[in-house]
Design a protein around this nucleic acid. Sequence first.
DNA 1: AATTACCGCGAACATCGATCGCAGTATTGG
DNA 2: CCAATACTGCGATCGATGTTCGCGGTAATT
Lengths: 230, 230
Amino acid sequence: MPEEPASIWLRPERGARGPAPERSRAQIAAVAIDLADAGGLAAVSTRQIAKALGTGPASLYRYVATRDDLIDLMHDAVTGEVDLSVPLTGDPIDDLLSLAARTRDLCLRHPWLLDVPVERTRLGPRAADYLEYALRALQHVPMTGRRKLEAISLLNGLVMLFAQLELQERRTPTARQAAQAAYRAQLAADGRHPLIAAAMAGSSLDPPEDPGQSFERMTRQLLAGLGLPG
Amino acid sequence: MPEEPASIWLRPERGARGPAPERSRAQIAAVAIDLADAGGLAAVSTRQIAKALGTGPASLYRYVATRDDLIDLMHDAVTGEVDLSVPLTGDPIDDLLSLAARTRDLCLRHPWLLDVPVERTRLGPRAADYLEYALRALQHVPMTGRRKLEAISLLNGLVMLFAQLELQERRTPTARQAAQAAYRAQLAADGRHPLIAAAMAGSSLDPPEDPGQSFERMTRQLLAGLGLPG
DNA sequence: AATTACCGCGAACATCGATCGCAGTATTGG
DNA sequence: CCAATACTGCGATCGATGTTCGCGGTAATT
């Protein structure tokens, strides 16, 4: 009989016998999210969380079986930040576009979301609400269930791609930028990559396009390509 | 004076003084790639590589300053597998489409590529050739350098999204599938997510679309959205 | 021939995720 | 009402990881 890896959402939050837990999954997730917002996913370690909670590292494992469970918790918690009370208009494109915009904001607020291994996530309750909402937007669209799920998955992927692009433009990691500059110089020097040299030379001068605008245009294209009525 | 994190591509492969290195960056990258192909990025550890090479873990650091450097090496090496001798037709759409298809094959051959932190990669020589090739396809398109770079980045992102979708459909991780089934049952039971229940119930029966076909359609849409002449 | 700069690598350190087992506490069943 | 039960908190610890130190040796430079 193989061990049951049993997604955390299937285990009860607390047992029926002993004393009440001193902390809750929600509290732990909140602390972990603060750590991740500040220092990225790598900063989310058993001991850092324990320290922030004022306990030893072992205590966490009463709430969570594994670090992955913890990330599931975090993922689900921030997914709950997306406002699902926005009424659907009935136009799938508009509705998904609006949802995508809200999701993009979420990614900008919690950049570590982009580092969560993509399909590793197990659907938590908040994520289920999210997915249900997205499927509701597609309710009257003639597609198979599988295609709808794929479409939502791709849409979220595109959202993350754009969020990535925007974040990468926003912050100025001095160390990296210096290294890039040095290497660019070498590339320009050897003369074998003239187009790269040209594109990168101009790139810092070219005005960036309004991210929101290009995001909306691309998302529309994606949805059209997915077979939605345009 | 801050330490120079100096991208690995800026350091010489070997010094001028001492004995010749017994191994090369290429050999190490090849071993690491084999490990990653077999067991994912997580299986690429200092000691595993050292063991495969028949040495101790410390020896690696004569070739690589950090694990990230090692991943840069791997990334660049597999990027070199993309055939850039395919002549360009002059039609940017066709050329990028063809390049994207080859890139998609690469991702399917080396699934760990999808786990490489996206913008962390420092442009190696092979990757530079790749980028130069892509820029050549865009040579006569009236876009700023920055927009071209963004377009290529987005295109590669889309390629990875599709590769992910396809891989996820291909393999059948029994443990996960069982957990998902259990959770799906609970979702269907509580009745609060009827659309999810319906979509997932059908999803295993619905015929999958030909991946290549949907990939090409979506890529066309993306390129059109990026402002390429269609 | 002496100096210098490099190579291989055993030993060790810090940190990480995770486990074990014990003391304490609330619920259950008789 | 009290033992049995099943849980909670957590110090100590394990194994694995990325990385550093410093040694003995080797080849190029002077």
